[in-house]
Amino acid sequence: MEPLLIALPKGRMADQSLDLLQRAGISMPNGDFGRKLVITSADGALRYIMAKPTDVPTFVEYGAADMGVCGLETLRESGRNVYEPLLLPFGHCRLSLISPTDRPDTPLRYESQPRVGTKYPRLTMAFFRERGVNAEIIALNGSIELAPLVGLADLIVDIIETGNTMRANGLAELRVIMHSQAVLIVNRAAYRLKADLIQQVLTALRAVLETNEQTSTRNVNV
């Protein structure tokens, strides 16, 4: 049978994904990535690729990868048409609208045309359109916090995990646009064509997640 190809997002989320897959008893990449782009598992049943996080939904929608892991906010921003059958217990963060702390406390809908810097132009556009506000979206690729400091943007939309970077730069969270965490995504065709393999992976992961939940509930009770 053809091996299942899994796309992992480069960075911390890849390690967390591999850790979870390993606990679920799913065969691991046989070796380290380093310069290699594709690694097969020892038993040959799975192949892994490392992709830029924002590219994972693209690989999966086209079926170049059968499944992948990415942040829910990355997936929604991509607009890619994939299955998203399982939330994973890491990568928790929120996508928020952020302003300088000295912004007067007036509703957003009073703004005529705010300039908003972001790595998430689609979601930002949707957020403002829903409120009838015609925002000028300034698409950036990094150091979003810089934009209001140098007058490039009035507001920014960005990911907040701890909020430390935000506070250190004199910025404050105005609104939560969405809560996010890692999600397992699957190509629509592969979900049916390779149903047996994919269901095996899903079942194994669900089992680990349930055990996790029980453990964490117990901890809370103690």
């Binding site: 829910l72 048409n81 994939v82 299955y83 998203e84 059958p85 399982l86 939330l87 999600v183 979900y191």
Partner: peptide, 9 residues
């Protein structure tokens, strides 16, 4: 349609 755990929940 998206077989979405987060959205169904």
């Amino acid at each position: 349609d998206r077989n979405s755990e987060p959205e169904v929940a």
